[in-house]
Write a protein that binds this DNA or RNA. Structure first.
Lengths: 240, 240
DNA sequence: CGGGGGCTTGAAACTGATCAAAACGCGTGG
DNA sequence: CCACGCGTTTTGATCAGTTTCAAGCCCCCG
């Protein structure tokens, strides 16, 4: 149900009118399954449609200085290449981590509904701004924190975002990342990520096995990484 | 002339119709001068207007892990707090580096012209997307490069952006940053930034004195930092 | 059963941080 | 005009966090 994903995401992002929700329901789309490591988009592509993540996890990445750097993760409901609506040529790769499913919605259809509804324009714009805020938070994470804080912050962010779309329950969720992926996202070596995760385990802050993460003491983990969720700019559950 | 700054910036970003340009000319604004270190906006503020940088330099910053991290710089023509149109509460401080001048345009006026013109909506949205791409580039910079590459990349980015608005001529421009500011932006210590700059000087790549930077061998500097300007998504001069 | 990817461990090497102090430049007030 | 003070740049020495290299292990999949 791609419509439902998209609707509930945009609803959380910005609030939608009844009309806008039915507009979204009428969107045509093309569903697709992705295998682990499969690319949705390559740097330089000029896609004619935008993707909505239905399930799984995508990473935005690029090879920098002979190392692959991940600059963001996208979970169900996210639209990673929404910027291609206004910046036609992609400047990063988009890659599936583990298997995922996505829906592709033509640019033309999106432009159409945005013409009809300022509310939807607002919601989609806002969605891109939230992701911009996430990139900034990553700048702060990579620039200012050392290994333990970086990994902890990443986990806090992913948990919180997963919770927002109902994919984490009580700090427990499925996370298909390998330690190499974490290293690529946090700007660390795999070896050091391994030791850092062990430290987090040793402190009794998390469990992480079989691609399943559990935050044992979320408050302490947040404190260790100075995580505070305001930058995600989600509407409060009460307002949803 | 705030109108001129804004117009030529948006023109470069997206192209504007004759009508849109006159719409921009009619915007009311309030000009303001800022002293070194003066704050335009503090985290948590809910501004009712957006700022256009007229001259000087602003930094977006936040204290993380007992260190101030700069996550972006803004130069003439930029609108650093455009996101507050859709994300009302600011999540970073905005601070003048050296003395600057800005113009404040009420949110209401911007909403008005966006209602009238899809082209302007497009241009402003695109402006926010370009800055998002810059944040991503910074993630890659901080995550993947070591000191020399980081500083070199920052210089390449600033030169290129300055050139786009006519503030750099032949790799030579005024840059009010202290070495401490560079350290805060690059996630390094001042001491190490100092040694890194000396290394760049020693390699004959740059001159930097009295807040004036000159790229002596731009191509080598770009190579050293793998800089390529596509992520800035500027229209080519020919198209402007 | 074999192979390979991911995880784990150890030791050595390096990049960059920290601490401390000196030199420099510049504006202010005496 | 000089003395003072403060912020910025520079230098040296030591220390810490992280990388790199290398090897072994585990476990799942074919």
């Amino acid at each position: 149900m791609p419509h439902q994903q998209l609707i509930s995401r945009l609803q959380a992002v910005s609030g939608l009118s009844e009309q806008d929700r039915t507009r979204l329901t009428r969107l045509r789309y093309k569903a697709k399954s992705l295998a682990d490591g499969e690319y949705v988009l390559r740097q330089g592509d000029k896609p004619q449609s935008c993707i909505v993540v239905m399930s799984g996890l995508l990473s935005r990445q690029r090879v920098v200085n002979a190392r692959t750097q991940i600059s963001s993760f996208y979970i169900a409901g996210d639209m990673p290449d929404l910027p291609t609506l206004h910046l036609p040529v992609a400047d990063c790769d988009l890659c599936s981590v583990g298997s995922s499913t996505i829906a592709a919605v033509p640019h033309s259809a999106l432009r159409e509904i945005m013409n009809e509804s300022p509310g939807l324009t607002h919601a989609l714009w806002r969605e891109t701004l939230i992701h911009a805020a996430i990139y900034r938070e990553w700048v702060e994470n990579l620039g200012s924190r050392q290994a333990l804080g970086r990994v902890a912050h990443l986990l806090c962010e992913l948990t919180t975002r997963m919770e927002f779309v109902g994919l984490a329950d009580n700090g427990n969720f499925r996370l298909p990342l390998t330690q190499q992926d974490v290293a690529d996202a946090c700007g660390l070596s795999v070896v050091h990520v391994n030791r850092t995760i062990q430290e987090l385990r040793g402190l009794g802050l998390i469990e992480w096995q079989n691609h399943t993460v559990t935050l044992l003491r979320p408050e302490e983990l947040k404190a260790a990484s100075e995580f505070s969720p305001e930058y995600l700019h989600e509407l409060q559950p009460s307002a949803r």
